Simulated scan of single mutants.
Amino acid sequence: MMLAPSAEQQNIAESVADFLSSEVPMTTVRRLWNEERSVDDKTWRRSVEMGWFALSVPEEAGGVGLGLGEEVMLFREVGRFATPGPFRATALAAYLASRTGNTEVLAAILSGEQRVGLKVGDQALDAHPGDLLLELDDEHPRIYEIDTCTPLVPTDPGVRLARASVGKVVVEAAGVALLSRARVLAAAELLGVIEATRDMSASYAQVRRQFDKPIGSHQAVKHRCADMAVGAYAVTAQVFAAAVSVSEAHPDAAFHAAAAHVLASARARRATADNVQNHGGIGYTWEQDAHVYLKRALTLELSCGSRQAGYDALIAPERHEFR
């Protein structure tokens, strides 16, 4: 990826969007809230067939042989459709397994046999007994076997939250910048959330009328929509720059990855709240989809650790070399 997506990368995004819009629309997302797993087996199998988890795995290891830029385009659409499921953690785990040469774990992930939850502090996202669990330690990322899970009540109904007890470590690595990669992909999902809420607000502002005028003609609403659009542009630039930096292992890659996640989190927090406000009274209702994106933004913000950890990564370097 350069600072703008290539035609091939745009094609990946379009194919993902076509699939999610037809196979995992919001009606399906809401139905899955009541299921044991956050994503059904059919959707999982289709994602495996489309190579979602193999994008950054070398061809000689059974992957597609592309990279982080392509994964950014994928997860931007996952965020745009508020798609539930441990897709990002599983893609990161596949990349880690390929880097360590663990062919057994890699094969289980690429075949769809294993799903991978994400360890965040003392909690686990989308973890299930018998699955795997990824820990994003900055120095030594690990993948564990999951023994048991004690369910907790999540803020985001599209995520299964639990306290997980783990078994043996099946993959462990040193010198793999997995946390930076995770921050870039979480930022890409957040970008999709921002763009989705921007479009929801802009569309509603054109059809909802007050005082015989579309509400989009009123200064307060139009300014919020404009701020959402500006935020989307800013986050897009930083996410793409971070993807290039991490892919090419630039000296300041950790800084750019943290910057992408911090900026995307802040802008998504504001955009999702403004989207609720733009929809007025219906924006607060369970039936309206505004709350789905607000809750997803909060989950994604904390999926790479605490907010302070992101700020610490921004102020850690004494000197930055921008290329």
Score class of each variant (00 low, 15 high):
residue 131 D to E: 14
residue 130 G to Y: 03
residue 130 G to R: 02
residue 77 E to D: 10
residue 78 V to N: 07
residue 74 L to P: 04
residue 103 T to F: 12
residue 89 A to V: 01
residue 106 L to I: 10
residue 83 T to P: 05
residue 107 A to F: 02
residue 74 L to S: 05
residue 113 E to T: 14
residue 102 N to W: 04
residue 63 G to N: 01
residue 115 R to L: 07
residue 126 D to T: 06
residue 136 L to G: 10
residue 101 G to N: 02
residue 114 Q to K: 15
residue 88 R to M: 15
residue 104 E to W: 11
residue 85 G to M: 08
residue 101 G to Y: 10
residue 86 P to I: 00
residue 69 G to I: 05
residue 131 D to K: 02
residue 119 K to S: 13
residue 83 T to E: 02
residue 99 R to P: 00
residue 108 A to F: 05
residue 131 D to T: 03
residue 72 V to M: 06
residue 96 L to W: 05
residue 99 R to I: 06
residue 97 A to S: 14
residue 103 T to N: 14
residue 92 L to S: 02
residue 115 R to H: 00
residue 101 G to W: 12
residue 94 A to E: 04
residue 102 N to M: 09
residue 66 L to H: 11
residue 82 A to W: 07
residue 83 T to F: 10
residue 119 K to L: 15
residue 78 V to Q: 03
residue 69 G to P: 04
residue 126 D to A: 05
residue 116 V to H: 02
residue 98 S to M: 03
residue 131 D to W: 14
residue 90 T to E: 08
residue 134 L to H: 02
residue 78 V to T: 07
residue 99 R to D: 08
residue 88 R to T: 13
residue 75 F to N: 03
residue 71 E to W: 08
residue 112 G to P: 04
residue 111 S to P: 07
residue 125 L to G: 10
residue 100 T to L: 06
residue 95 Y to P: 04
residue 64 V to M: 15
residue 114 Q to N: 13
residue 116 V to Q: 09
residue 78 V to A: 12
residue 121 G to I: 00
residue 76 R to W: 13
residue 94 A to I: 00
residue 113 E to W: 10
residue 125 L to M: 12
residue 120 V to Y: 09
residue 68 L to S: 09
residue 104 E to S: 13
residue 80 R to I: 06
residue 104 E to Q: 14
residue 105 V to R: 03
residue 123 Q to E: 15
residue 73 M to F: 10
residue 112 G to S: 11
residue 127 A to E: 01
residue 69 G to S: 08
residue 109 I to A: 09
residue 136 L to I: 01
residue 97 A to P: 12
residue 67 G to H: 03
residue 80 R to P: 10
residue 111 S to T: 14
residue 105 V to W: 02
